[in-house]
């Protein structure tokens, strides 16, 4: 009986990991408007980490880096050709205009910090 329960528990735990990290959504997206959007970089996460923007419209993001560890020092927008160094305790403004609708990942250089930029039509 115990054997059974422990195995079942383990499998459930694995299913939970798969669901939580891959299958479930990443929470509500933050819609970027005309004003700059502040993104706080601290404790291993971008907050907010999911951003929505309109294709063809300039998007201004202000990264406020609080985490002094070097992991946080750079933000890279893959496929958009943007990379920027972030200073601790200071805002770094990034302006970009995504042309194509789609999902773009932005991460630190080691990909521990992860965020998604969703570009809609």
């Amino acid at each position: 009986m115990t054997t059974w329960l422990i195995n079942l528990g383990g499998l459930l735990l694995m299913a939970l990991i798969v669901w939580w990290f891959w299958l479930s959504g990443r929470g509500p997206a933050k819609r970027a408007g005309d004003t700059p959007l502040d993104i706080v970089v601290d404790n291993g996460v971008y907050e907010p980490s999911v951003i929505q923007a309109r294709a063809g419209q300039p998007l201004t993001l202000r990264f406020l880096r609080r985490d002094p560890s070097p992991c946080a020092e750079q933000v890279i927008f893959h496929d958009l050709g943007v990379s920027e160094f972030l200073d601790t305790g200071k805002a770094t403004t990034i302006t970009l205009t995504p042309r194509q609708p789609g999902k773009y990942r932005f991460t630190c250089q080691m990909q521990m910090y992860q965020g998604t930029l969703i570009v809609n039509d």
């Binding site: 939580w20 601290d42 404790n43 291993g44 996460v45 980490s49 521990m112 992860q114």
Partner: peptide
């Protein structure tokens, strides 16, 4: 703290 924050965001690092 990093683990907890990341976990809440469906992230793991």
């Amino acid at each position: 703290i990093g683990a907890w924050k990341a976990g809440r965001h469906h992230n793991a690092n």
